[in-house]
Simulated assay, not measured.
Amino acid sequence: MGDDELMRALLLTTLAAMTGAAPGAITSVTVRDADFAQVKALGPDELDAFARMWASKRRVDRAQAGDGTHYKLDIGAEGWSQRYLYYSSGLLTLLAKDVQPVYEVADPVAFNRLIGAAE
């Protein structure tokens, strides 16, 4: 394993630890609306684009709810799955019993288009 590959693996593991996700390729994403009705299930090509956008999200210092329409993102990979609350303004957080950090996707317009969210 070369230095670049080692750094990439270390970065991916660190990002996974910071976001609460286990390392591994995302295998499924289902988008649900406020009433839990399925909006979209991403296909294989879309999963690659989603994974790239997901990896570029950044933690933000915001405690209030996001603006816009909210959705649930059911994200799965081998051995784990998680549900996130996502606002079409680009903010998201893991749905859990305790308080979780808030993240923001880098490009909300492109992300909304990918997941089928109304802006």
Score class of each variant (00 low, 15 high):
92 L>N: 07
94 L>R: 14
89 S>D: 10
37 A>L: 12
67 D>E: 10
94 L>D: 04
107 D>M: 03
106 A>M: 04
57 K>V: 12
27 T>E: 08
31 V>N: 04
73 L>D: 06
75 I>R: 07
65 A>Y: 06
44 P>W: 02
74 D>G: 02
112 N>H: 00
69 T>K: 09
104 E>G: 08
73 L>E: 03
118 A>N: 01
66 G>Q: 08
87 Y>L: 01
41 A>N: 13
75 I>P: 06
117 A>N: 04
66 G>C: 04
117 A>F: 04
106 A>F: 00
84 Y>C: 09
55 A>L: 15
85 L>V: 11
57 K>A: 11
29 V>I: 10
94 L>K: 11
115 I>R: 05
53 M>A: 05
45 D>T: 15
52 R>M: 14
87 Y>A: 01
45 D>G: 13
90 G>I: 01
86 Y>K: 10
104 E>M: 03
27 T>C: 01
36 F>S: 14
112 N>M: 04
31 V>D: 05
65 A>P: 09
72 K>N: 15
49 A>G: 05
71 Y>P: 06
116 G>R: 02
36 F>I: 13
89 S>K: 01
68 G>E: 10
103 Y>N: 00
107 D>S: 01
107 D>Q: 01
38 Q>V: 11
82 Q>L: 14
55 A>G: 10
106 A>V: 02
104 E>Q: 10
39 V>Q: 07
50 F>Q: 07
59 R>Y: 14
29 V>F: 03
102 V>R: 04
113 R>L: 03
100 Q>V: 09
30 T>G: 10
118 A>W: 04
34 A>D: 11
91 L>W: 08
107 D>Y: 00
46 E>D: 12
78 E>R: 15
63 A>L: 15
60 V>I: 14
48 D>I: 15
48 D>L: 15
111 F>N: 01
118 A>F: 03
46 E>T: 15
45 D>R: 15
98 D>V: 13
67 D>N: 05
118 A>P: 00
52 R>T: 15
92 L>R: 05
42 L>W: 10
44 P>V: 09
117 A>C: 02
98 D>T: 14
85 L>Y: 00
72 K>S: 13
27 T>D: 03
95 L>Y: 05
49 A>V: 14
70 H>P: 13
47 L>Y: 02
104 E>A: 12
115 I>D: 01
80 W>D: 12
78 E>S: 02
65 A>C: 10
73 L>Y: 07
103 Y>M: 07
48 D>A: 15
60 V>W: 05
55 A>T: 13
103 Y>A: 05
96 A>T: 06
57 K>Q: 13
61 D>E: 15
75 I>V: 15
39 V>F: 14
66 G>K: 04
71 Y>C: 02
55 A>F: 12
73 L>T: 07
36 F>W: 11
84 Y>L: 08
53 M>K: 07
94 L>E: 03
63 A>D: 11
87 Y>E: 01
44 P>K: 09
78 E>I: 12
